[in-house]
Structures are given as C-alpha cells and as structure tokens.
Amino acid sequence: MTGAQMTDTPEALIEVRDLAKTFDVSKPGLVRLLEGLPVQALKAVDGVAFSIRRGETFSLVGESGCGKSSVARMVVGLDRPTRGSVVFDGTDLAALRRRADIAPLRRRMQMIFQDPYASLNPRWRVADVVAEPLDAFGLVRSRSDRTEKVAEVLQQVGLSPDDGRKYPHEFSGGQRQRISIARALAANPDFVVCDEPTSALDVSVQAQILNLMKDLQQRFGLTYLFISHDLSVVNHVSSRIGVMYLGRLCEVATAGDLFRHPQHPYSRLLLDTIPDVAMAGRARAPVPGEVPDPIDPPPGCAFHPRCPFANERCLQERPEPARYGHSTVACHAVEEQRIPPFSRSNTGR
C-alpha cells in the first residue's frame, strides 16, 4: 500500500515494506464476556516502509509509544510482523521457516539494547557473555579460538582481554555498554540495530560510546538502524532519519534536510522542542498537547489535533507518504503547499 514510494534505492541492505504490528490489549476473555466489552487492538506500527543502504546509519526518532522499538524488534526478527515484510539482503525473512535457513541471516544482524544493566546476564562472566553468539552460531572450533576471538573483540571496544574474567557488576554503565557492543560484534555482523544505546548513559560517556560506534562502523563497514528519542544524538550519527508518530512514518529525509528544512509539522515540532545549550536564557516555544492514546487514535491524520496547519481534509483522510524533493512526507498540508518555510530562529520567542 505505502510500500512503493518510500523504498526506491537499489543497493538496500534492509528493505521494510508496509510493516505493521497489532497487539491485542483486550481485557481477559471472561471479563470481556461478562461486561460485554469489545476486543481492543493497539496498532503499534502501521504501514511503515523504508530502506537502509549498505554502510549508512538510518535512525528512527519519535516520542515514547510511537512504535520505533517495535519496528526495531521486527527488523531483527524478535517479533513477528502482523503484516508486511522485512527483506534482508534480498531475502524475505518471513518466508524463511526452517531454523537452518534463518540462522545464517541471524548471525549477520545483531542488536544493542538500551539498558546495559538489564541486557547482560549478571551470573555470566564477561567472556561468556561476549562468546554467546560464537557458541550459538558455531563460529569457533576450539577453546583457544574462542578465547582469542573474545580477547580480540574486547580490545576492539576499548576493554582489556583480562576484563573477560570479571562479572558485569564490576563495570560502570559505559563499560557495560562496551560489553554489549563487543557481544554484537563477536559474530561479525553486517547490520546492527541499536535501540537507544546511549540514553541510560551520562553525556561524557555517551560521547565515548557514540565515537566508538562510529569508529567501528568505518572499520567494519557496518550498517546501523539507530533508535533514539534524542534529536541531537540522531543528528550526530545519522545519514538518513525517519520520524515516527503513533505507529506511522511522517517524514523520511537525510539528516541535513531534516534539520535544515523539516517539512512535516511534527518534525518541526520536535526540532522546536530540542533544548539548545547555545540558547542559554532563551525560552523554547512550549508545544501544546500530548500524544493521543494509541488504542483510540484520532481519525484522518493522527497528528491533526496538535497540528497548527490542520484543515477539514486532515480530520478525515489519512495522508499517504509521497516524495517532495529528496524527502518523503505524509502530510496534506505539505502536499497542498499550505506550510510556510521553516526557520528555527523565529520560534524561540
């Protein structure tokens, strides 16, 4: 449905087509029966389509509950999509049923999670944590190969091979995130999904991790799908960015285009709300309204209740993504050219 317009790149490593995930959030069956309640569905992701080129960093941004983490989980195969498909290097993941067919692809895609305190098993030594992908995919033949490979990846992320003997609790948050990166790298992946990898870290440590990830990307030619709510981090790491709102993509653009000429009113809203260190003493324009309840989203364009440019058509008809310049935008106001050019300076009244 919306697949064709957003994906037109030839050398895509990942292609996501019309991806959707619906969660059943109904009350338990008996309660529903007794109280006469309907079945309720939450559309966490609805018709998302994008492609990621080899070697680039594609980011998804949005506020909590917009579906960005659900997309990430479906892309690596942790969740099964309700509709749509994920094509990795020409192979549709949903079409693979046999474990033996999936495993080689699984090795090539790894994930780094947000919370380095929850994503490492506290009872395992770091060497075992890092070697888990090696064991799972049968990548090493002998004990000494394994030790050697673990030492190598630990050094790649700036830890010492001796750290392999320690337990996760002996490390700080930043070092733990280095361990999760080492685990992701152990299987020599092509594609790494990073779900808010620095949002649990302090800024000075965040800078270390972002620099490390960038350095590793250049050294190993990695492709990243980066999930974050922090626009200044996203601006720093990304080649292209998709902005999500209530389960749908509202704008896909290069980092430069999005930050200089955001088109969708929601992208503009997000840019306006970034606290800027250079703006000391100047007030941000507070944005009215909140993200609506995803169980009962507004009809038409989901953003219309907060949109300063909404008209009658936005209340009824859902906008489909279309190309404007180098960006893809789903907005009636952009289509009808009802939106004035963006300028960040005149919003800081």
């Binding site: 800078a207 620099n211 960038k214």
Partner: peptide, 19 residues
C-alpha cells in the same frame, strides 16, 4: 561532549574514563 545541532559529524570531544 554534547552533540550539537548544526555541527558536522566529526567525532565528539570525549573525556576518557569515568567519574
């Protein structure tokens, strides 16, 4: 070490180590 809007994608200045 704070990423800024409008800056290029040069590596961030970092303070090595941790508190």
């Amino acid at each position: 070490s704070i990423p800024r809007l409008g800056s290029d994608s040069a590596p961030l200045a970092q303070i090595d180590g941790a508190m």
